[in-house]
Design a protein around this nucleic acid. Structure first.
Lengths: 206, 206
DNA sequence: TATTCACCCTACCAACCGGTAGGTAGGCAC
DNA sequence: GTGCCTACCTACCGGTTGGTAGGGTGAATA
């Protein structure tokens, strides 16, 4: 088991520090690969003290997932409220998704892991993390198509490819970083973003 | 731990049956979530007998990865040799990638898991499973661009988005299957494939 | 016939897992 | 003071893990 680097934000209370360390651990090693002991060590407490705050490993894992989910949802709401224009709204939402990926790669990875480990739970109806994003964006595209501003295409299939491309790119960044030189890596980051934007504009916008 | 259904192909020798069961187990539960005992049970032998064929869990895991890797490589060679025309070659390779995803979702999932679990090992230079695909396709696109048959774009960024979209779609199929009705699911399968093809033709082909 | 060897087994091990029992120290209310 | 709370601790539990030791068997080899 790799030792986790300790979380150094003493201004947070213990519970938040546990959540933070757990997010990092679960995203790096997965549910089974993470021991609550290692999480406890990362926040400099003993295992029973951690279990005082979260009564079981499952509960801790659930709390991490929930904190991600609520945060992601509020991000979406903000992005949707930003504009009235369909094209701009579309770009804003994708931008918001990109920013989340970039700022919280741990969360991105963990949600993908959850989908691999537990597809049935990940899919429990409205709990699935991508569901609200897809729903809102499908509506948005349909609206744009009725207004004659978007090309005719299957919104779901299109969105899944775009979001999937972005999602996959983010989770493979650690690998790419090891393969490419620093300058190539940085260039690819920019190019991928631009390329994705081109795909959206070329395929969706009239 | 979920019990694995036993592999019922008695014509294979034990070693191959172990590999097969291990692939399924690792892809479903990951390295830490899989016990070699459960793999042994799936092929109706005891744990020490499994360890007779693969001397450790790591070795078994490595053997599974290697068998996938060699298979994937031969798939690529076949696809590249299929045509001289750049456009057709491009479509053939993507088709080959698609077929692999479809026929061996376990392998697809496992390789993604490996990237999440162990980015540094996954990236060990020429071992990375996508490296040969990307290399060959980058060359192909460059050639097409010189011939004036492909649009000017950054091959790597374009390819990563396309392959990422396909890859991500495959690993989320189990989740999607639980969310959508059977007919919607089937329709989405078709639409996504068509949509991806449209993206390639629209963005790359002149 | 004697020996080797691949294959599979039972029995066992130390290490680690998630979780519990029970106790201590300090803060706050009365 | 007493009582009660939160936060943390040490010590321990049963169960599971990856891996080892060593024995049996049957087919090939000398």
């Amino acid at each position: 088991m790799t030792k986790l680097k300790s979380v150094k934000t003493p201004e947070l209370d213990t519970k938040s520090r546990i959540l933070q360390a757990a997010l990092e651990a679960f995203s790096q090693s997965g549910f089974y690969g993470t021991s609550i002991n290692s999480v406890a060590e990362a926040v400099n407490i003993k295992k029973p003290s951690l279990l005082h705050h979260f009564s079981s490993k499952e509960k801790l894992y659930g709390a991490v997932l929930e904190s991600i989910s609520t945060r992601l949802l509020s991000e979406l709401e903000a992005a949707m409220a930003s504009s009235e224009d369909e094209k701009q709204q579309m770009l804003n939402v994708m931008d918001s998704f990109y920013r989340w990926n970039k700022e919280c790669p741990n969360e991105t990875v963990l949600l993908l892991r959850e989908m691999l480990d537990n597809p049935q739970r990940a899919a429990t109806a409205h709990n699935w993390y991508l569901a609200p994003w897809l729903e809102r964006l499908v509506e948005l595209i349909r609206r744009g198509q009725q207004n004659g501003r978007f090309h005719e295409l299957e919104p779901m299939a299109f969105l899944y490819n775009i979001i999937g491309a972005q999602h996959y790119f983010v989770v493979s960044l650690p690998t790419l970083k090891q393969i490419l030189s620093a300058s190539d890596f940085k260039a690819l980051l920019k190019q991928q973003r631009q390329e994705l934007k081109s795909l959206i504009e070329l395929r969706l916008f009239k």
